[in-house]
Design a protein around this nucleic acid. Structure first.
Lengths: 204, 204
DNA sequence: TGCAACTTTGCAGTGAACGCACTTTTGTGT
DNA sequence: ACACAAAAGTGCGTTCACTGCAAAGTTGCA
């Protein structure tokens, strides 16, 4: 149940390895400096100096400074879990399968748990980052809707956009709950709690 | 059921009227130019020239250029509907009262329906605006959580953050549905449809 | 080894956004 | 009608995020 891109070779070429190393170096440099001085007091120049890279290169990797702090990586929906979902699995029940998908997102994030945790730590202190993160979510809603549409068809009982939004909502809410618990506990337990509470609110 | 600030006098002073006129002039100028040339091709300078105002003044009104396009206005939760909600009304049933609150938000938006519609029209073509709009929502989640907490207390069965998130979700989803329908139909009907579909998805 | 594809980098430029000090406008009390 | 305080508008200078372009360096492959 891994969340990687499709067709990923077992061993990466030098080029690809260097790219990843640089991206991580930039993220780590950003985390170090921002953690110490705050987001606004750190310039892109400073980050690049810390990471030993030119400014121009920085912007080859990240669209914005904030993206580096969040570790936002160009993302394509393409995990095995997504394919399973589109094909109608794993259980065949929509809600259960949505939950499986959410768990797969959270269990295997694109930048690793530690970096993710550090990014969220910063985001808690820098509201702008939360906003940017929501924006990033929003940009990928189209992909989620498309995925849902592959599963349900256009003639399904639910609108793909709505289901996509729910998917996003559950992911975000679960993540917040997990983070509020200090990063402890399994993703699927937090998700279950979220779903239960959501149902309860809606039926009050 | 109006969505105004508390303590708003019946007749506004010259100062306040001018301020509103300027803000609206800036929004309208932004809409005109952006509608014609696109968001990135329009500079703040150009907007200010169109509106007959200095650039520095522009930034006294809006934090960013994008905010002007969206008509984002400094916002304080303070409508009569919000007070009613906090006090446990109007029906006493949580979900019904949440819906009443959403309807009050959508029925009486801070910048008027036409401008709101134009802003959304632009946002449909400029993804960045959608992102910024989400960010704006996010910034006000704290206020919503606080409102919910006033109603439920900390010892209630639901976490205020969760209920606040639901409130936001419903508002946003209803708005999208309303917009997709070309701005036709009553807010509460769209909201009901959204709630119904949400319940249906969750119980699948 | 050499060529093609990809990456990095420097440079110069654009334009958003802010701090500050100064002028103009508005509200108010006399 | 006038003066004075508070608020709003404005010009200037600065910082810095971000971009396009073309040159130089790296890597993959035959």
């Amino acid at each position: 149940m891994q969340n990687n891109l499709v067709d990923q070779p077992e061993v990466l070429g030098l080029r690809e390895r260097k790219k990843r190393a640089r991206r991580e170096a930039l993220i780590d440099a950003t985390h170090r400096l921002v953690g110490e001085h705050g987001l606004d007091a750190v310039t892109v120049d400073a980050i690049c100096e810390e990471a030993g890279v030119s400014v121009r290169t920085f912007f080859n990797y990240f669209e914005t400074k904030d993206d580096a702090a969040l570790g936002h990586t160009p993302w394509q929906l393409g995990s095995a879990a997504a394919e399973t979902f589109a094909a109608g699995g794993p259980t065949g029940l929509l809600m259960a399968d949505l939950q499986a998908l959410v768990v797969s997102f959270l269990t295997d994030p694109p930048i690793g748990r530690e970096r993710l945790a550090r990014a969220m730590e910063l985001a808690a202190k820098e509201p702008r980052l939360v906003a940017r993160h929501m924006a990033w979510f929003e940009q990928h809603k189209g992909q989620l809707s498309a995925l849902v549409e592959r599963r349900l068809g256009q003639d399904g009982p639910h609108s793909p956009e709505m289901v996509g939004s729910v998917l996003l909502f559950l992911t975000h809410a679960t993540f917040l709950r997990w983070d509020a618990a200090g990063g402890h506990g399994a993703a699927d337990e937090h998700l279950s709690a979220v779903v239960t509470e959501l149902r309860s609110i809606l039926s009050d």
